[in-house]
Write a protein that binds this DNA or RNA. Structure first.
Length: 587
RNA sequence: GCUGCUGUAGCUCAGUGGUAGAGCACUUCCUUGGUAAGGAAGAGGUCAUGGGUUCAAGCCCCAUCAGCAGCUCCA
């Protein structure tokens, strides 16, 4: 949790989740009052507040939210006591006449569990509680927005109207939460992307396709360089594979059978069906299969920044975070069963190195065999899952279980990273695969001369360039670390007669090379400072008479107003160190 | 895909049936300024696209495209 989002310091008589659940009830009672005939769905507390689902004839508007809030305050004053009644199943049924969803919820309660209602005033709700005792206690709430939500989260069910809200014990905490939401809004990569001219998408090109502008291209190139540097050290070699392949390849891989929903329709080339690739693995497999392989070659580690295209439903595309064409930082490791734990452990170490460079904390999840649409025997899955467990143990990496969350060809370790605002994102994944080697009949010749089956590890660390960079924009709020900032240094002369001195500074910086913007235009210095600030340039070097005489620069760090005058050579040393160490800060 | 909402200048937005607007950004001229907006003038719009209603549509209706808040699903 970030500073803005800390848990309450004072000990309250009830947990926050209990308060929020009760406020959800309060909201539902207000809706009942204002919209006779409403049917109620579920209304739980959630991470940052609560919601309640309603089946209403008319769509709700923001105006309605204000009315509902007002009614809530009235009801809280008028009927503050929240009481619990335990009733028989028959009585419950009578109390819920006409409430179709609640009756369905009642049927979900096991026979041996008690059935309780919570009531304030003349409104009651089937609910196991717990709740706060009185609605006239001191607390602060706000209704936030409405949205559609399927009954019980199933898209085959009717859609209900959901109202989201939040509640806190103190006004200060509510204010802090609202400030946090404002910060989230300000850092939104779509907003920052426009402000800083980083990327765009176009109706002309279709939904879900990202165009990287030059400044974000710089960021991406820096990440790629960093990525290749570490991968080369870890023995990965680059491969490149085409974006399109004959459909039959994806029949062999099992994609047509299990992944067709995500794939684009075939295109005919020489009257033969071809597909745009949704994954890179079949391509790497073809390279492996191109000739016989010896155990002496293993493990083989092949990496590719491979672009893939997947159909995402229209309502799900979101900026750079959820798109239809993206580049995975993909790699496949082909190894023997004996090598597997060490290989996976090596990937875990690489993940740690990369994620911590950006200042991310992370949690690792073990995603096991899905209930349907899988290939391979259960024993094979068990072996693969155990190998992931063993590798994590080697690394001392704790795993949280994600039952049924695996890919169709194997179990995986998924990483969730936590950004500067305390939000979680899923990027890195390590997948253990015994099945594709089987389907493609991959072999190597072992020391005893026998042909044996290798194991494949699929892994992506950034996940996709698009999603990772989108998260980075929000994580840093556009303030990229020095090493990958689009412009690293802005050089600003105080008056035009200092331009020559500044030009020599800019020239030195550019030849280093640093990405340097010599702001030579004959406009007011203040305007340039404002512009550089707006573009989140890490350093401004400002020079006038004093600096020119002393061979110094006035260094202004991003986010501060102070200037530190230092010899230019000292600044060069600082910049070199920040670049070389890929430091997060500017000191 | 589904529910609701939105689409007017590069950006943020005003404009509820009768001559397309503001601030910022941009261009030009003036200003020579020591750390976040000096002054003046100018340019910029097929009001998302297509159809319909109307004497008249940015505004009302329909469709399409794109976006937003969610649901579902995911790197």
């Amino acid at each position: 949790m970030s500073e803005l989002e800390q848990a309450p310091q004072v000990v309250e008589p009830y947990p926050l989740s209990t308060l929020r659940h009760s406020v959800a009830h309060l909201m539902a009672s207000a809706v009942a009052k204002l919209f006779p005939g409403v049917k109620f769905g579920f209304g739980p507390s959630i991470e940052h507040g609560f919601y309640y689902d309603f089946d209403l004839a008319e769509p709700l508007s923001d105006k309605d939210l204000k009315r509902i809030e007002k009614e809530m305050r009235r009801i809280a004053k008028q009927s503050p006591e929240l009481v619990c009644h335990e009733v028989s199943r028959d009585e419950a049924r009578q109390r819920l006449v006409g409430q179709d969803y609640k009756l369905e919820a009642l049927d979900l309660i096991p026979a041996d569990e008690k059935i309780t209602f919570f009531q304030h005033g003349d409104w009651q709700d089937l609910c196991e509680g717990p709740h706060i005792d009185r609605l006239d206690r001191e607390f602060y709430f706000k209704l936030q927005h409405t949205a559609g939500a399927y009954w019980r989260g199933d898209e085959h069910n009717p859609m209900l109207q959901r109202i989201y809200g939040t509640a806190f014990w103190s006004e200060a905490e509510l204010e802090r939460h609202l400030a946090w939401l404002e910060e989230v809004r300000l850092r939104d990569h779509r907003k920052v992307g426009v402000d800083m001219d980083l990327f765009s998408s176009h109706a002309e090109a279709g939904s879900g396709f990202v165009f990287w502008h030059p400044d974000l291209g710089v960021v991406r190139r820096e990440l790629e360089e960093f990525w290749w540097e570490l991968h080369t050290k870890d023995g990965y070699k680059p491969v490149y594979t085409p974006h399109v392949a004959r459909e039959s390849l994806f029949a062999v891989s099992g994609h047509l059978e299990n992944y067709a929903d995500m794939m684009y329709a075939p295109m005919a080339i020489d009257e033969m069906p071809y597909r745009v690739k949704p994954m890179n693995c079949p391509g790497h497999i073809l390279i492996y299969k191109n000739r016989g392989r010896s155990y002496r070659e293993l493990p083989i580690r092949w990496a590719e920044l491979g672009s893939v295209y997947r159909y995402e439903r229209s309502g799900t595309v979101h900026g750079m975070l959820r798109v239809r064409g993206f580049t995975q930082d993909d790699a496949h490791i082909f190894c023997t069963p004996e090598q597997l734990p060490k290989e996976i452990a090596g990937v875990c170490a690489l993940v740690d190195k990369i994620l911590t460079t950006f200042g991310f904390e992370y949690t690792a999840y073990l995603a096991t065999r899905p209930a349907d649409k899988t290939i391979g025997d259960v024993e094979v899955w068990d072996r693969a899952t155990q190998a992931l467990r063993d590798a994590a143990a080697i690394q001392g990496l704790p795993l949280v279980l994600d039952e049924g969350g695996g890919a169709f060809y194997g179990p995986k370790i998924d990483y969730k990273i936590k950004d500067a605002l305390g939000r979680e994102w899923q990027n890195s994944t390590i997948q253990c695969d015994f099945n594709l080697p089987e389907r493609f009949d991959l072999t190597y010749v072992d020391s005893d001369g026998a042909k044996k089956r290798p194991i494949m590890v699929h892994r992506a660390i950034l996940g996709s360039m698009e999603r990772f960079v989108g998260v980075l924009i929000e994580h840093f709020g556009g303030k990229f670390p020095f090493w990958c900032a689009p412009t690293q240094v802005a050089v600003i002369p105080i008056r035009e007669e200092h331009a020559d001195y500044c030009a020599t500074l800019a020239d030195r910086l550019t030849r280093e090379p640093f990405r340097c913007d010599f702001m030579a235009e004959p406009v007011h210095m203040n305007k340039k400072i404002k512009e550089a600030q707006h573009r989140q340039v890490p350093f401004m070097l400002i020079a006038g008479e004093r600096e020119q005489e002393d061979g110094t620069v006035a260094v202004r760090r991003r986010g501060t107003r102070e200037q530190v005058v230092m010899p230019f050579e000292d600044f060069l040393e600082l910049a070199r160190r920040l670049k070389q160490t890929r430091a997060l800060g500017l000191d």
